[in-house]
Nucleic acid binder design. Structure first.
Length: 360
DNA sequence: AACTCGTGGGC
DNA sequence: TGCCCAAGAGT
């Protein structure tokens, strides 16, 4: 391991931080509830994207008791549009756990925090250091990037050994009496100065004299990250079934995207298909449509996720008022106001927005 | 331990 | 346009 004794890494870093830090709302508190809330929101999420959600959650749920008392659908509805919805489900579970098992008081150590759902090694270190100044180093995407470049670490950050290798550096650099500010500083430095791609002004970086990547002109290739995501293509046919001013919505269950969110009756053929072919495979829907009017057939919606590209066509179906509709499992009728209140994916929301304009 | 889970912005 | 990736965690 590199000898850090003459490096003054933390001193330089925290001095830089005091000058350049952004004034972010969760930095003006040590309340673990607000720290925790902000950290969950910011997982894999940019500050500008998460900020409005932080304000919404603080206003709707000022304390962990308020959050614990809410329904899961209410929490998901507030999370709507932010993505990675397991964060919201775990947020709610953890709030209830803190109330039920910790008497509403957040655990105050890294090891105890790790037991909370949705709180992994990064988030536990963040809460422990930001709220309690416990000397445990945070290791997130920013820290990987800064350490890789400054010390010329070539370990693939997608590999299994990366966490161990980088953690040793991160922990060795952490002053035991200033964990809070140091951890904030190294992440802020990664976000604002040592940015992904090619940073704009490495010339004036506080580590310009020591940085291995700068000396070798390798900022653009460090940190090394190998794995590329395979994108699976899927084909959705969504049927918005309407009868007597009410709409059929389905709660998504199981191991798939948007668990806990609501959508419509769905057919998913393995390849792009025509309606006639779909109906031959689904006699329930065929019977429904034979007692209905097709109000609208949407164009193609292409929705891109990290691992999936979903091609979707929506069918707005008005079922005859006197037809007896026996709904499949997890499906139920909702009026327009209730539909609006249900948590829905951005794909479904984009469609509803367009469809409401067309029908207005 | 590889795979999965969203969305939006930048270039 | 397609690709990267952004304060990761669960399985």
């Amino acid at each position: 391991m590199t000898d850090f004794s003459q490096f003054h890494f933390s001193q330089k870093l925290t001095q830089w931080y005091e000058i350049h830090k952004r004034d972010l709302p969760w930095r003006n508190t040590t309340n673990p509830y607000y720290i925790w809330l902000s950290e969950i929101i910011l997982q894999q999420t940019r500050v500008v994207q998460g900020m409005p959600y932080y304000y919404k959650f603080v206003e709707a749920f000022p304390t962990v008791f308020d959050l614990a008392a809410a329904d899961e659908a209410e929490v998901l509805r507030l999370w709507q549009g932010l993505g990675y919805y397991s964060r919201a489900r775990n947020l709610h579970k953890t709030a209830k756990m803190v109330v039920d098992e910790y008497d509403g008081v957040f655990p105050d150590s890294y090891q105890e925090l790790l037991k909370l759902k949705g709180v992994g090694s990064y988030t536990a270190a963040a809460i422990a250091s930001f709220s309690y100044n416990e000397p445990v180093a945070v290791l997130d995407g920013n820290v990987y990037r800064v350490l890789s470049r400054v010390f010329g670490i070539e370990t693939d950050i997608a590999s299994n050994e990366a966490k161990k290798v980088y953690s040793e550096y991160a922990q060795a650099l952490l002053p035991t009496n200033n964990a809070n500010t140091h951890n904030q500083a190294i992440m802020e430095f990664g976000a604002m100065q040592c940015t992904p791609g090619t940073p704009s002004d490495c010339m004036f970086c506080i580590f310009a004299n020591e940085c291995v990547a700068h000396a070798q002109g390798r900022q653009a290739v460090l940190p090394i990250k190998s794995k590329k995501v395979k994108v699976k293509e899927r084909f959705f046919h969504y049927f918005l079934l309407e009868q007597n001013e009410k709409f059929v919505m389905r709660k998504r269950v199981g191991r798939d995207v948007w668990e806990g969110m609501y959508d419509f009756y769905l057919l998913e053929p393995s390849e792009s298909s025509q309606l006639d072919d779909l109906l031959e495979q689904d006699h329930w829907l065929k019977e429904v449509i034979s007692n209905a009017v097709i109000l609208n057939e949407s164009g193609n919606f292409t929705h891109v996720l990290t691992h999936q590209k979903i091609q979707t066509k929506f069918w707005h179906i008005r079922v005859n008022a006197d037809f007896s509709l026996n709904l499949p499992e997890n499906h139920a009728f909702y009026n327009l106001s209730e539909v609006d209140d249900l948590p829905k994916s951005t794909l479904v929301n984009n469609y509803l927005t367009q469809e409401s304009k067309i029908l207005a």
